[in-house]
Amino acid sequence: MNTPPHNGPINPMPPYIVALFLVLVGIEAVLSLADRGIIGGAMGVGWRMSALEEYGFSPRVFWWMFENGIFPPEHLKRFVSYAFVHGTFTHALFAGVFVLALGKMVGEAFGAIATLAVFLVATVCGAVIYAVFVGGDRLLFGAYPGAYGLIGAFTYVLWLRLGQMGEAQVRAFSLIGMLLGIQLVFAVLFSGPKDWVADIGGFVAGFLLSFAVSPGGWTKILNKLRQRSD
């Protein structure tokens, strides 16, 4: 039986994207209430800093693990856990909006497992790129590298559609170009942190991973490899 079309004013949101959004916002809600002393009392004021130190991604710790060949679980978790802790309520809100908007569009094209894979792989790759090209002691935190991975997947979808229509595929990169342009301007004018490097890493990871995890992706790759070998 065919699923009847949705005629409501708002298109349904994939439940796994809603769940991801609620986790992000739920953690931030607790930290925001603690910042204001509403929960946790006097100790609650320090919850955010403690969470950042415990779950934020540290380039220094990354290089320590790499150089010593030691990878304890309490530090490996940082490759993912940093995405769920933010600096402020606004920081978390914008990340959540990105996840909702892009997650819905990518989810409709890719499905649940592939969409979540893009978010997680982009999160990990963003952290690695940040450690390699930025380094230092400043912690990386927030869901933006994962959200930019979803932007990369969405760009892949646009890139394919423009190619099928015979139009210039470079237009698919207009969104990421605009977002990175804004970030670079703010970084230059206000000497802000270089978190945008992790965002670029997340975007590239999301775009490249889409070639494999999109519907029929592996089949397309194998066909191209066979054509080259013939």
Score class of each variant (00 low, 15 high):
Y144L: 08
A122S: 15
V61R: 14
L158C: 12
A122E: 11
L222G: 01
I10C: 10
N11L: 13
G152T: 06
I10V: 15
V118H: 01
V23E: 00
E74D: 11
L184S: 06
F141Y: 05
L116Y: 05
G96K: 12
T123G: 04
L93A: 14
I10M: 12
S58T: 03
A127I: 02
F62H: 15
Y144T: 12
F186M: 08
V99Y: 09
V204A: 02
Y156E: 05
W218Q: 01
P193E: 13
Q164V: 09
G135M: 14
R171L: 10
I27V: 15
L120R: 08
G163K: 00
L100I: 09
L100T: 06
A127C: 08
F141D: 03
L116T: 11
A51E: 01
I176F: 04
L100D: 06
V134D: 01
R226V: 10
L158T: 06
M1T: 14
E167G: 09
F21M: 08
P193T: 11
A147M: 13
P215N: 04
G146V: 04
A19M: 00
L116R: 02
Y55W: 15
G192V: 04
A122W: 07
S32Q: 09
G202K: 06
K224M: 09
H6Q: 09
I200R: 07
L158H: 09
K77Y: 08
F98M: 14
G177I: 14
S174T: 12
K104E: 11
A42W: 06
M49F: 11
P215K: 03
I17R: 06
A187E: 14
F62W: 15
A114V: 06
H86I: 00
F203V: 10
L162S: 02
L158W: 05
P73Q: 09
E67W: 12
I176M: 01
F190C: 07
K194Y: 00
P59L: 07
Q169G: 08
T88L: 04
Y82Q: 13
S214A: 13
E53V: 05
V157W: 10
F66T: 14
S58Q: 00
Q183A: 05
L162F: 11
C125F: 08
D195F: 13
Y144A: 08
F89Q: 15
S58Y: 03
S32P: 01
L180M: 11
N223Y: 02
G216Y: 02
F79P: 14
S58L: 02
S229M: 08
L93E: 10
M178I: 14
L184I: 15
